Simulated scan of single mutants.
Amino acid sequence: MTALTVSVPTEQLLDDVRGLLDPALDVELVLWDGQDAPPRDRIDIVVPPYMRQGRMLARLPELACRLVQGQAIGYEGVEERLPAGSAYANATGVHETATAELTVGLLLVAQRGLDRMTRNQDDGVWDNFRAVGLADRRIVMLGYGGVAKAIAERLAPFEVDLVAVASRARDEDGRRVHALDELPALLPDADILVNVLPGGPETHHLIDDRVLSLLPDGALLVNVGRGPTVDTDALVEHVRRGRIRVASDVFDPEPLPADHPLWSLDGVFVSPHVGGNTEAMRPRIAKLVAGQAERLARGEEPVNVVIRT
Rank of each mutant, 00 (worst) to 15 (best):
L67Y: 08
M141R: 04
V8T: 08
P261Y: 11
W263R: 10
A169S: 10
R210P: 00
G199Y: 11
L107E: 02
E79W: 11
T10V: 03
A87T: 10
R119F: 00
D26G: 02
V236I: 14
R210Y: 06
L60V: 07
R170H: 11
A166F: 00
D123Q: 15
H178C: 07
G225Q: 05
G299L: 08
C65Y: 04
P261F: 10
P261H: 10
D161R: 11
L4M: 05
E80G: 14
L60M: 09
N304K: 13
A58F: 05
E96T: 12
L214C: 01
L193M: 08
D233K: 00
I73P: 07
N90H: 06
P184C: 05
L183F: 09
L197A: 14
H260A: 04
A37W: 05
M1D: 12
V224P: 08
N277M: 13
A72G: 15
A185C: 10
F251T: 00
A89V: 12
G70K: 04
G227I: 13
W126E: 13
L296H: 04
D122T: 01
P257Y: 00
D16F: 06
P38D: 01
R40L: 13
A91L: 04
G145S: 02
A179I: 05
P61L: 07
F269V: 15
A169W: 04
R210H: 10
N195A: 14
V68F: 05
E279W: 13
H273D: 01
A150V: 00
L214H: 01
A164L: 15
P228Y: 09
Q35G: 14
I192F: 02
L102A: 05
A290T: 02
R66D: 15
A37Y: 01
V196M: 11
R282L: 12
V222C: 08
L256V: 01
S7K: 10
E76W: 14
N304H: 14
V147C: 06
V177R: 08
E202C: 01
A258F: 01
R241Y: 00
Q12P: 00
T278W: 09
